[in-house]
């Protein structure tokens, strides 16, 4: 199929950017969106135009690096996928596709479609861990049984790939889903409960400092999350934070 692409081009963080329009031809429906972008880039290079810069790495939906806002939606129109898992069969011949970077104050554009998500790393640094050193003589892994339901819920929260689609799609650019997923994972496990109060306070504090917006419970993040992480995690974080503020 033949497509028209409206792609955001921006040289670096300081300059302002604008949309550029390109045509691509003979795109197979079996291609992934990023392979289509590869085709565009090879075409641009042969024409002497610098290729479009975008983040991507594993191309199997787990590293969380790819980050395109496609036709007004994070990771495009398909559900439960990252951009690398989005296939061109979701589009029609002759379509015009708008491709933009994630937009948030806390995710400044690096170049073209690539943004800086180090704010997520700093939130993890604020408390997204269990304070245990590497030790050869820790208690046996089976010393503390964990109820399967809790273990499964912790796992579901832990599947977050840190791609930032939740922030990108939220009308407020809020990072609540990301932060609450990590808070929940540890709050649900006995190992994590020791530091639960400090963790939630520090992570929320850092989230606020980074300039993310506030949660208005629209639920858009949950819909667009490639891993389907539930906003139940946000409710849990709200509880944890309240508890941490009132009690400890």
């Amino acid at each position: 199929m033949n497509l028209t692409l409206k792609v955001w081009r921006q040289k670096n963080a300081k300059e302002t950017g604008s949309f550029a329009t390109y045509q691509v031809r003979d795109i197979s429906p079996d291609m992934s969106f990023l392979e289509m972008m590869d085709v565009l880039n090879e075409q641009l290079i042969s024409q002497g135009t610098e290729s479009v810069v975008f983040d991507h790495d594993c191309r199997e939906g787990i590293c969380g690096m790819c980050s395109m806002f496609i036709n007004g939606e994070a990771h495009g129109p398909d559900r439960g996928v990252t951009t690398c898992q989005l296939h061109m069969r979701k589009f029609k011949d002759g379509d015009t596709i708008t491709v933009e970077p994630w937009r948030a104050k806390a995710f400044p554009v690096v170049r073209d479609l690539m943004v800086d998500r180090s704010s997520f790393d700093r939130i993890i640094q604020a408390g997204g861990f269990i304070s245990v050193n590497t030790m050869g003589n820790l208690p046996d892994a089976n010393a503390t049984p964990i109820e399967k339901h809790d273990a499964d819920a912790a796992f579901d929260a832990a599947t977050c790939i840190g791609c930032g689609a939740c922030v990108a799609t939220c009308k407020n650019a809020s990072a609540m889903l990301f932060v609450s997923a990590k808070v929940s994972q540890f709050a649900l496990l006995p190992q994590g409960q020791v530091e639960a109060a400090d963790r939630v306070r520090n992570m929320v504090n850092q989230m606020d400092l980074e300039g993310f917006g506030n949660c208005t419970n629209t639920g858009a993040c949950e819909v667009e999350c490639p891993k389907g992480i539930s906003i139940e995690n946000i409710a849990r974080m709200n509880r944890e934070y309240l508890k941490a503020s009132l009690i400890s």
Partner: peptide, 25 residues
Amino acid sequence: RQNRAARPVGYGEYRGSANAGWASR
């Protein structure tokens, strides 16, 4: 106001209706 400040540069195309109800937005 904070929410607006959290996204200083808006999207060219934004399909809010794709994933959230009108009232909530």
